[in-house]
Design a protein around this nucleic acid. Sequence first.
RNA 1: GGAGGCGUCGCCUAGUCUGGUCCAUGGCGCCCGCCUGCUAAGCGGGAGCGGUCUUAAAGCCGCACGCGGGUUCAAAUCCCGCCGCCUCCGCCA
Length: 424
Amino acid sequence: MIDVKLLRTNPDLVRASQTARGESVEIVDELLAADEQRRSSIANYETLRAEQKDLGRHVAKASGDEKAALLARTKELAAEVKQAQATTDEAGTRFDALLRRVGNLVDPAAPVGGEDDFAVLETHGTPRDFEAEGFTPRDHLELGEILGAIDTERGAKVSGSRFYYLIGQGAELELALINLAMSKAREWGFTAMIPPALVNPPAMEGTGFLGQAAQDVYHLEADDMYLVGTAEVPMAAYHSDEILDAKRLPLRYAGYSPCYRREAGSYGKDTRGIFRVHWFDKVEMFVYCDPADAAEMHTKLLGYEKAFIDALELPYRVIDVATGDLGLSAARKYDCEAWLPTQQRYREITSTSNCTEFQARRLGIRSRGSDGLAPVATLNGTLCAVTRIIVMLLENHQQADGSVRIPPALQPFLGGREALTPVD
RNA sequence: GGAGGCGUCGCCUAGUCUGGUCCAUGGCGCCCGCCUGCUAAGCGGGAGCGGUCUUAAAGCCGCACGCGGGUUCAAAUCCCGCCGCCUCCGCCA
């Protein structure tokens, strides 16, 4: 949620943010009206309630005729209080529902525009020139089959399209990547976490995934539970409704979990291989910190992502995601996109968001500072989205004979092997 | 899944049967003063959340006894639903 005080004192800022996001501005006026209604009905309720309480005390002490007279008055009052309470609840619910639909205030530094209006911040490494090397690169699925590492046919047989099995070297590669990611995270001071991948509605809603993103989320009807699309959800909800010790901030976690996505809006897109799938595993970084430190922490998270990609020796670039493509919670978002040889373009492999106090307000996560309780800032960033990384490793490090070079950083986690090799 | 028990201000706890002086008891721990050259002890004070007023503090009001409803003039207390924890049984990786 955005800050209500800010909404009252500077609604134009909220309007500007909504415009940058490509969202409705009218909602700001609706909100202001609803807020006014809510406040006046609260005031009314409190007045009545105070009177009722006062009378109640007298009733307790009175007796006989006096008591009867008091009871008559207080009975009348009770009806009024009930009415006022209903009005207040309704006004509060309406205001809250509206407020939760408004996205986070965008960072003024973020590029304004839609999906294609991102800014390229930096580019690292050089895409290989396969022509010069004298062979045509195979795509990741072909390589995966040669290596006996990826089986999408049986994935489809058992679970449907966009499912896969990792087998042999493929399965070992995932475990190696997870271990590399977790050991680096540990070095950087993150606490390892294995969170639940199934969460209740408040956790999903609080993290901001039940708005426009709802059609992409798996819902288990029978139990009213959600399969998370990212560990960000259980990691953010971990400290929900808690007051954190300001002295112990920042809290940093590295969570390993499966991710489930319906990919409802992407029929026909990236249908080949495991680039876009309904389930994959991921190591996610999540940070709770002082809002004043959030921007700096965001840069750090990006730095960790870059360090991981560097270790895997992938050519990539960093983009500053445009305001219209931020999602509900982020004020600013940086994506790392690695070069995908068979598509001759950069594709997203990590994403890090600064959600400022937006999620913390929705989830009730605060810390006690010099001026009382205040929401903390939350940030998240991908360390290793396994399937995407496998795609990139296979395609970028492939050799003419179908083998795949393993970057030195990863070798210790694969028993010292220097390459994945074709199976018969 | 079945049976039973429990859920009170950081922790423990009184109160629930028999609704109203509960605006919730006491202890421990914690914080701030005072005091004794330090520490402990002792004495005094403070500590939930939201709103409002104020330069600020104080103050005032509301909410809060797991959560949500209901009954009642009045609910920690009675009724219903839900959630969580514990014990036993069953089932199970």
